[in-house]
């Protein structure tokens, strides 16, 4: 089994706010992430696909194809966007690193038709990242 990883970056804004909480609770739980006009990050996304190399091409999957999928599904959707308001897949969710990574997993998993999606790793900053795995695949 080979694990192939492709990295992309996108920049986006977000804020954390749960309308079921009072203003005070929002401030206590989310801290400065609750600032009303939001703030942004340079997100770094690492997508890992597992599979055996094709005997003819020697590739797990065509990197060009993966690059196009990442462009279409992630960059076109999220880059230079305000995640709370402009990404319908995140509507009704707090756009934490956890929820963004899980959303990215759901967007990519059905698009990876050669090999299988093994891991989505999303860095919000160099000191904070989330790994998303399929059921039973964490390692």
């Amino acid at each position: 089994m080979i694990y192939l990883t492709r990295k992309i970056e996108f920049s986006a804004a977000h804020l954390y706010h749960n309308s079921a909480f009072s203003a005070e609770e929002n401030r206590r739980i989310f801290g400065k992430c609750n600032n009303p006009h939001g703030h942004g990050h340079n997100y770094v996304l690492e997508v890992t696909v597992a599979g055996a190399p094709d005997p003819t091409t020697g590739m797990v999957l065509d990197l060009k194809e993966l690059k196009e999928i990442l462009q279409r599904e992630i960059i076109d959707r999220m880059d230079h966007r305000f995640l709370n308001y402009e990404v319908p897949e995140l509507a009704g969710q707090i756009p934490t690193c956890e929820n963004i990574a899980a959303t990215i997993w759901k967007l990519l998993e059905p698009r990876i038709t050669r090999g299988r999606l093994h891991r989505v790793r999303l860095y919000e900053t160099p000191d904070l990242f989330v790994d998303c795995y399929g059921d039973g695949d964490a390692r």
Binding site: P126, F129, V130, D131, C132, Y133, G134, D135, A138
Partner: peptide, 10 residues
């Protein structure tokens, strides 16, 4: 789906 959150400290 499983989520792992990682934080770095020095």
């Amino acid at each position: 789906m499983t989520l792992h959150l990682t934080r770095r400290y020095s």
